[in-house]
Structure formats: structure tokens, C-alpha cells
């Protein structure tokens, strides 16, 4: 037992070094912009760059829209399938897992070919159309995470019994969804939403191939043209991801507290 604990420490510390070194290094590197002393020059220059603000806000808006779209598609479907069409569940689940198997680059390639200017639905013909396509692409990428989060949330509340109980007490469908289902899966929905946010913010391939000015392509462009700013961007991107995950953790912990009272 003692010996086992010793090796556990060894493995853990080795892992911690591997995972923390790049973070420390990135931070250190981002401070090296001024010769000989540590400074926040790289951050200053990034923050002063109008492109930074434009691309980041573009990505943030897109992420929020993606979340709305994703929830609008996933939540009612997951709810309905659990309640009325349980036999369809394996098939729906299979479809939602496909984006993990089909590489994003292949999916976006399909978009470009399917929705080009000569097609029935020439989405890539206009900027708004391309934005919409990009949003749909992101919603597709987040499908596995979103569906899983919401479905897990629904599973934990025994939907059928609860709905029947509510109906027997005279509740309408609107009441059931707004007062019973939503509050119970809210945490799950929010977790999915934050995860989607984290994925969309730094995404590169889709945005680059659809030629939209998102944060991901901007970071790559900076990487090719600047020395220290990319590190600063990485720190910022990491902070955003961390904030999203932190919020998920906070939410799940909050949920644990409320559901313990059962």
C-alpha cells in the first residue's frame, strides 16, 4: 500500500510537470516582449490591435448564436425522444456521435461543395449566409457534447413518471416544460453551453476554410507574423477556456448540493 502510494505520487508529479510546464512557459514567453525585463507589452499590443477585438467579438457572438441554435435543436429533441420515442434513442444518439468520427475538415469540405454559389442553397454566396453556415457547422461540432449533457440531465429526473404525475395534477405542457423540465436540466444545459462556447472560441478549421474573420484564424495569422503576441493570445484563450470549465464545475457542484436533498 505504502509503495503504491509512492508510485502514485511519482506518476502524478510527472503528469503535473508535463501539463504545467507549457502553461508556465507560455506565460513566461508572453512576458518576454521587452528585452531583458518581463513586461505586459505583448498583451498591450494584442489588446490594442483592432483585429483582436473584431475577431474575438465575432467569435463570441457566433458562439452565443451557436449555443442558442444548438439548444433549440437538441433540448426539444432529447426531451421528446425520452418521453415519446424511446425506440429512436439509439439512432439519435448514433447521429449525435458522428461528428466525433467524421473529421471537422471533411464536414466543412462538404459544406463548401454542397452550398456553393451554384447550388440550390447558395449559402456561401453571401457573408450572412456563410456566417449561418459556420454557425451550423459549430452546432454540428458541439452536437455530441450538447446532446449528451442534456440527455444525461433528463435521465436523472425520470421524465416519464414526472410528466405523468404533473399531468395527473392537471398541469399543461407549457407548465411541465417551463416549471419542471427546464429547472431540472438547466445545469446540464448550461454545462453543454459553456463547453460549446469553449470549443467555438478557438476553432480554426471551419472559420479558415469558410473565410470568416474569427478568432482562430487570427491567432494563426499572428503565429506566423509575430513572436510574443501568440503566447499572449494563448494565455487569453486558455483563460477563456478555463473560465468556461470553471463555470461548469461551479454549476455541477451547485447541482450536487441541491440534488442531495432528495
Amino acid at each position: 500500500m505504502k509503495q503504491g502510494t509512492f508510485w502514485s505520487w511519482v506518476v502524478f508529479i510527472a503528469g503535473a510537470i508535463y501539463f504545467f510546464l507549457p502553461l508556465i512557459a507560455t506565460f513566461e514567453f508572453s512576458m518576454r516582449a521587452r528585452r531583458g525585463v518581463y513586461s505586459f507589452d505583448a498583451y498591450r499590443s494584442v489588446l490594442a490591435d483592432p483585429q483582436f477585438r473584431d475577431t474575438l467579438s465575432y467569435s463570441v457572438v457566433l458562439a452565443l448564436l451557436t449555443i442558442v441554435l444548438g439548444l433549440a435543436i437538441v433540448t426539444p429533441t432529447a426531451f421528446w425522444v425520452r418521453l415519446k420515442l424511446p425506440r429512436l434513442r439509439p439512432y439519435i444518439e448514433f447521429i449525435t456521435l458522428l461528428p466525433l468520427v467524421i473529421p471537422p475538415i471533411v464536414i466543412v469540405f462538404g459544406y463548401i461543395r454542397l452550398y456553393n454559389t451554384a447550388s440550390y442553397l447558395p449559402l456561401t454566396g453571401s457573408l450572412r449566409g456563410t456566417d449561418f453556415l459556420l454557425m451550423c457547422g459549430y452546432a454540428t461540432l458541439s452536437l455530441p457534447y450538447m446532446y449528451r449533457a442534456v440527455d444525461t440531465g433528463l435521465r436523472s429526473i425520470d421524465l416519464v413518471t414526472m410528466t405523468e404525475a404533473a399531468q395527473s395534477l392537471g398541469a399543461s405542457w407549457t407548465t411541465i416544460i417551463l416549471r419542471l423540465v427546464l429547472p431540472n436540466v438547466l445545469v446540464a444545459i448550461l454545462s453543454g453551453a459553456f463547453l460549446t462556447f469553449a470549443i467555438v472560441i478557438g476553432e480554426y478549421v471551419l472559420a479558415a476554410l469558410l473565410n470568416r474573420p474569427a478568432f482562430g484564424p487570427y491567432m494563426v495569422w499572428m503565429g506566423g507574423n509575430r513572436a510574443y503576441e501568440p503566447a499572449a493570445l494563448a494565455v487569453i484563450a486558455f483563460a477563456i477556456t478555463w473560465a468556461c470549465m470553471g463555470l461548469i464545475q461551479l454549476l455541477t457542484r451547485f447541482q450536487k448540493h441541491t440534488s442531495k436533498k432528495r
Binding site: 507549457p22 502553461l23 478557438g202 476553432e203 503565429g223 494563448a234 470549465m245
Partner: peptide, 15 residues
């Protein structure tokens, strides 16, 4: 696990 992509590359360049 969500730190893939561009920032990860920068982090490794810095390391």
C-alpha cells in the same frame, strides 16, 4: 482536453 488547436501549438513553441 479542450485546449487543443492553435493555443496549444503556441504553448509548445513557448516550451
Amino acid at each position: 482536453s479542450n485546449f487543443a488547436g492553435v493555443p496549444l501549438a503556441f504553448a509548445f513553441i513557448a516550451t
